[in-house]
Structures are given as C-alpha cells and as structure tokens.
C-alpha cells in the first residue's frame, strides 16, 4: 500500500472516530462540550454502575421514560446531572438527594433526535461518575405542538398533582404526575413556561432533596423518587412564572 492509499484510508476512517473520547460506551461528538459546560471540565470516569435505563428507541419522542439509578453510590452522592447530548435543550435535571432520599430518579423527557443520554453523579470525593445510554428516535419531540394546550380547560388543571406512595422493601417510592405544559420556547409563539424547581420535604418542612428541572422534561411531568422511612412527605414545585404547587405523599 502506498502513501496515498494510506492517506485515503485514513480520511475514510476519520469521520467514524471524529471527536469521541476513549472509553466512552456510546459514540458521541458532544461529550467534550458538555463535560466542559456542565461539569466544568472536572475529573470524571465513565461508570457502568451509574445505570441509565431507557428503551432502545423512542416510541413517543415527546414522552421518553428514563430512569437514573446511582444506588451503587448510596450515601456518597452529592449531585446527579442528566442530559440528552444532542437535544436543543440538553439538560434534564440537577438532583441533590439528601441522606434520606435514594440517588435514583425516574422522569419522562422529550428528545429531538437519536441521542446519547448521560447521567453524571458527583460523589463526595469530587469525581463525576458518568453513566451513559443511547436512544434511537424518529425525533421531533422538542418541537411538536403542545398536547396540553390543545386540551380545553388546561389552565384550570395547572399544577394539579396525581400521585401515589408505594411501599418497597426498605423504602417508599413516590410517583407523581403534575399537570403543566412545560413549554420549552421551541414551539412557535409560545414562550418558555415550565416547572424549574422542586423540593421534597418531610412533615416538619425539612428539605430532603432538591431538584432543578429543565424544559427538556415532558409535558405533564411524571416523576418518581424513593425515600426512606414511613413519614409523610411534601413535594413543593415552582415554575418559571412563579406559580407554586404543593402535594402531600
């Protein structure tokens, strides 16, 4: 093989390797960007123990269920960030579970195209443990017309919460669905209007976990948290227009 052939082969191979990072379990051109922007370039490891459970493809790109589970690092978790790498609005949530709340969160999101999904778990030693998964999609979930706004009387239902507490072996699972359009500003003529803050509190108002949400979260957000003990909890929510909502579980 002469020099020109080698060069040609190298050029052919180049688009396949592109910007991906060694050890990355998913092929991504965006890791470096998000690492710098969301994790401030801090030390990290790709870590299979941070589980990102999702379907292999998005049947409904407006409601993609994801489950981030960092139970392997229970007791050591400071923060969990999640993002959809190729979304126009990449960030999904920023979750800080306190001692009584498990480092595990299920939520539904919108995706605009097939994309890697990441969950970065900051442990007390200052290392980000990054779990990764990939989802295929026909896409369009972020720019699809609002389903909520097409329903008559949605304003009256704003902030209504459906929920239930499920007893598990050594914890309780709190599952809720909050009526909210979660407008992400990408649909013509409708500005951003979404739930951006949540706290889980105990019966005395003590904060058990804080959660920041981003408008990649689906309309009528479905959330699931796990908390230790039997005590009553309250979920507090606020949207970017200042509306506050509360639910007891």
């Amino acid at each position: 093989m002469d020099g020109r052939s080698l060069l040609l082969l190298a050029l052919l191979a180049w688009p396949c390797t592109g910007w991906s990072v060694e050890g990355d379990p998913v092929t991504s051109v965006m890791w470096n960007y998000h690492h710098a922007r969301l994790l401030d370039g801090a030390p990290f490891v790709f870590d299979e123990q941070v589980r990102v459970l999702l379907p292999p493809f998005a049947e409904d790109a407006r409601q993609v269920p994801i489950l981030v589970d960092a139970s392997a690092y229970r007791g050591q978790v400071v923060r969990i960030l999640a993002w959809a790498e190729l979304n126009p609005i990449a960030q999904i949530f920023d979750f800080a579970p306190g001692a009584e709340v498990l480092p595990r969160l299920a939520i539904r999101i919108r995706i605009e195209q097939a994309t890697p999904i990441r969950a970065a778990v900051l442990t007390r030693d200052g290392i980000w443990h990054v779990g990764s998964s990939y989802i295929d999609a026909a896409g369009g979930g972020c720019t699809a017309p609002s389903v909520v706004r097409a329903e008559a009387g949605w304003e009256e239902r704003l902030g209504q919460v459906l929920g239930k507490r499920f007893a598990l072996a050594d914890s309780s699972r709190l599952r809720v669905q909050i009526a909210h359009p979660m407008d992400n500003g990408l649909v013509g003529g409708i500005p951003e209007f979404y739930l951006n803050q949540a706290e889980l509190r105990d019966g005395n108002g003590k904060v058990l976990a804080t959660l920041e949400l981003f408008p990649s979260v689906s309309e009528n957000p479905t959330l699931s948290l796990e908390v230790q003990g039997e005590g009553e909890t309250e979920l507090w929510l606020r949207d970017n227009n200042g509306n506050e909502f509360k639910a007891a579980l």
Partner: peptide, 16 residues
C-alpha cells in the same frame, strides 16, 4: 409507551 400512562393514572389520585 402507548398504554402504561393509562394504567398508571388509574392507580393514582389527586395529592395536591
């Protein structure tokens, strides 16, 4: 994806 939301909602009640 198509059907589970209906089953979920049937289990839940208003908690706000």
């Amino acid at each position: 994806s198509h059907l589970y939301p209906r089953y979920e909602q049937a289990q839940m009640e208003r908690v706000d």
